[in-house]
Amino acid sequence: MIDVLIAIAGVLVACTVIVKLFFWKEGNPKVIVCEKERTPFKLDAVTEKSISVSTMVEFRNVGTQCATIMDCIVRTLLPYEQYDGVKAEGRAEREGAPREDDYFESVLIQKQESIFIHARVILTARKGMDIRTALTHMVDLPMDIVYTELGRRPWAIHKARIVLTADEIAKLAGIKLADD
């Protein structure tokens, strides 16, 4: 009887080891956002009241399985307590798949491949100012790229942060920052 139990336990252990080895060999998807290697912000459009600038960020799947990015948004963080001269809005747009509706179509990233996301920010002047005047008092603008990822594990929300500095936006707008 003991021999039978030992044999059963041995088979179970062997099966567990084989399955674990199989999972280890197969691996997982792993998406990293290369926010530090983002391109410099570039000017997309400027009017009297607003300015639109964007940067391109790589989403790289360094894993060994296919990953899915189900949704992606750019969340700007400019509280009016800090500066209320402009309203900031962010957008995420996939390189090669431009959309005008601010809808992010879910996308696969094959193993060891990348997609590129345009993180766009639109700054609109407030309080009756034109955008150039409003930007003279601009502060650094942090932005979270928030994305939903799924693959071999249940869906999860991740964030990566980039910052549009006041110096960068001033340079793009062709203005000089005020010495506040």
């Binding site: 399985q65 296919c66 899915t68 193993k111 799924l150 693959g151 071999r152 594990r153 249940p154």
Partner: peptide, 10 residues
């Protein structure tokens, strides 16, 4: 296989 519709937990 990871391309299949049943490859995700969902």
């Amino acid at each position: 296989p990871d391309q299949g519709s049943l490859a995700s937990p969902h």
